[in-house]
Every structure is written in C-alpha cells, then in structure tokens.
C-alpha cells in the first residue's frame, strides 16, 4: 500500500477533487469487496457492503486522521460494516449461522470445490475469529496493523488469531477436509 499516494489522494479529495476519490475507490474496491465477501459469503451482500463502506469513507473523509495509515482506517470501516451488515441480516432472517451451514453438511463435500468448503468452514467460526483470519491470511496484514484495525493490543491479536486458526482447523477436521489419524 502506497501511504504517500493515499495521503495525496485524500488531500486532493478534501480540496474538492472528486476524481481523487474515484482513484481511491478503484484502488481499494477489490480489497473491501474481498473482506466483505469473506465475512458474509454472499456476493450481493459483499457488493452492498463495499458500496456502503466507500460512501461512509467519503462522508467521513474530513474526520480521517492522517497520522494513521489510510488503508488501516479503511479496513476498520470495512470490518465494522461487514459485521453490522451480518448482524442486521441475522436479525432480519432470525437464522443462526449454524442452521444455515449445517443444512448443507451432508456427503456433498466431494462435489464442492475446496475453496467453497473452506469458505463454508470459515462461516462456522465466530465473526470475530473470522475477522482475524481474513486480515492475516487474505489481506496479509501484520499483527500491528491488525491490532490497529481491531483496536486490540498485539498480544491479544496473536492469541486470538491462534485460537481462530485452531478453531478453523477443528472445523475442517470435523468436516473431513483434514486427516485426523
């Protein structure tokens, strides 16, 4: 991530240059979309979340503190939006994650692509644990960057990430994706 370039784009946008914001959207839309999808496992929801994230970012751009990295701030908003969207959807449908996903647990694994099965497994761990895995494995953030995004200490990030990964491993073992002999 080019921090200086981000800072310039933010500055330009605050000076009234909408094209600069368009550049920021172009630069980060894939990242935000991927985070949203990994958190929701739904393409439409991911698109809605990504749109909401960028609109929120634009509206709050004058509140952005340039001493922090822009992308960290963006991640934080993206994660919050993903969690909120998920909570809202859960509230509306009154369905639990486990119900949604255990329904598809049968002997269908062989027909499903590994990636889809891993995504399914991801949805079976808690959203907070999933967040850590998304940031570490999909976005390749450092412990420090994750700590900023989630407003946690590095120590807590490490311990929670280890727990999350262990939990996911257990789900994959349970679902027969990992050997257990």
């Amino acid at each position: 991530m080019d921090e200086k370039s981000d800072a310039r784009l933010v500055q330009s946008c605050l000076a009234g240059n909408v094209k600069a914001f368009e550049r920021l959207v172009e630069k980060y839309q894939t990242t935000v979309y991927n985070i949203a999808f990994r958190m929701t496992a739904n393409f439409d929801d991911a698109e809605d979340i990504a749109q909401a994230v960028f609109i929120k970012i634009y509206e709050q751009l004058d509140k952005y503190n340039p001493k922090f990295k822009f992308f960290s701030w963006l991640y934080r908003i993206a994660l919050n939006e993903s969690l909120n969207a998920r909570k809202q959807k859960k509230h509306l449908t009154e369905l639990d994650d486990d119900i949604i996903w255990t329904n598809s647990v049968d002997k269908n694994y062989s027909r499903m692509e590994t990636n889809e099965r891993v995504q399914e497994a991801l949805m079976l761990i808690s959203a907070e644990q999933r967040l850590l895995i998304v940031l570490k494995h999909f976005e390749a953030l450092s412990y420090q960057e994750i700590a900023f995004c989630l407003d946690l200490s590095e120590k807590k990030v490490k311990s929670r990430l280890y727990d999350a990964r262990q939990m996911l491993k257990n789900v994959l073992v349970t679902r027969g994706m990992l050997q257990d002999d």
Binding site: Q29, T30, N34, E47, Q51, F54, V118, F138, L172
Partner: peptide
C-alpha cells in the same frame, strides 16, 4: 493440520470487484 489449514486459506482466490461498486458509489 494447522499448516494444511493455512495452506487452504492462502490458496483462496482473490475475487474481482464488480464495476457496479465504483459506479454506484460515484
């Protein structure tokens, strides 16, 4: 098992963002 889990995660594809996102936002 943990190494395999990590490998699964690291091999997950990066999805292309829909062009609708930028259009809608702008």
């Amino acid at each position: 098992q943990l190494s395999q889990t990590s490998e699964f995660l690291d091999k997950m594809p990066r999805l292309e963002a829909s062009p609708n996102i930028k259009k809608y936002v702008m």
